[in-house]
């Protein structure tokens, strides 16, 4: 089955007790494992002030999970979070595509840099990213290389 990476952030009501928080955590873990997914990472951001009020709440407890699993797992998780009383807001997004694109870009850039270095007769590896200061300086540099 297609395995994808997701990121889940949910906001729990600040009135929730430790027990309720633990229950929610357990609920998510159970759901994830039942659908054959895995919980990669959990971060508790703790209580923080929200940018706007959601219902009667001015602050909330933020929890982040990174999950690997399939689409039906996410569907079920989404449903469960929507009906959970203590959860005032949640966001569940897929991340693997973005990560892959970022990785590809990084690789492509490194290759291009290596190629440029090779063209200048330098060893491709020592890769100290020169800080770009001025667009013009960059242009001159490039012109000099071509000449």
């Amino acid at each position: 089955m297609a395995s994808r990476q997701y990121e889940l952030v949910y906001i729990v009501s600040p009135d929730a007790t430790e027990q309720q928080l633990a229950d929610l955590q357990a609920l998510i873990e159970a759901t994830v494992s039942r659908f054959g997914g895995s919980l990669d990472n959990t971060e508790n951001w703790g209580r923080r002030k929200m940018a706007y009020e959601i219902g009667p709440h001015k602050e909330g407890v933020y929890v982040l999970h990174q999950i690997t699993g399939a689409g039906d797992l996410v569907k079920e998780l989404d449903r469960r979070l929507r009906v959970a009383d203590q959860v005032i807001r949640h966001l569940l997004v897929r991340t693997d595509e973005e990560l892959r694109v970022a990785e590809r870009d990084r690789l492509r850039r490194r290759e291009a840099a290596a190629r440029r270095r090779a063209a200048r007769g330098l060893p491709p590896e020592p890769e100290v990213a020169e800080p770009r200061v001025e667009g013009e300086a960059q242009d001159q540099d490039q012109a000099g290389r071509e000449a």
Partner: peptide, 10 residues
């Protein structure tokens, strides 16, 4: 996305 999570105001 950040707006949805009330990290940033609408």
């Amino acid at each position: 996305r950040a707006r949805q999570l009330a990290l940033i105001p609408y």
